[in-house]
């Protein structure tokens, strides 16, 4: 089981990689979303705020009204944001649950493609 701090570190790394990626920033410039990230096997809760394609904030706890809710195990969350695993696999096996519009699911996968190409 990953700790809250480990997930925070993974998210911070993910934020930096997204923000440093000019191609991704340009591609997602019309994307403004609040994501809630929930680990179902411990009390870890995070909020990620994306404004115009820039990941502005990653904070512990659930803040604001989410557009997207990601629920999965803490290890999966941690591995996913470090890039150790492809979240699509977990989504398709039912281990990762998303409450989001179809378009936002596609955007998340696009981020995955750009940050960690196949």
């Amino acid at each position: 089981m990953a700790t809250q701090q480990e997930i925070t570190a993974a998210l911070a790394d993910f934020r930096d990689r997204c923000n440093e990626n000019a191609r991704l920033r340009k591609m997602q410039r019309d994307w403004t979303k609040v994501l809630h990230l929930i680990a179902e096997d411990n009390d870890s809760r995070h909020t990620m705020t994306v404004v115009g394609g820039e990941t502005r904030k990653v904070e512990e706890g659930l803040v604001g009204t989410p557009d997207i809710i990601v629920t999965t195990g803490s290890e999966t969350l941690c591995d996913m944001f470090w890039g150790d695993l492809n979240p699509a696999q977990k989504y398709l096996s039912g281990e990762l649950k998303l409450k989001a519009s179809q378009e936002d699911v596609m955007r998340l996968d696009a981020i995955n493609l750009i940050i960690w190409p196949d």
Binding site: E6, G83, D84, P117, D118
Partner: peptide, 9 residues
């Protein structure tokens, strides 16, 4: 399998 370009914890 994770792609070769993936990062690692």
């Amino acid at each position: 399998a994770p792609a070769a370009t993936r990062r690692r914890r």
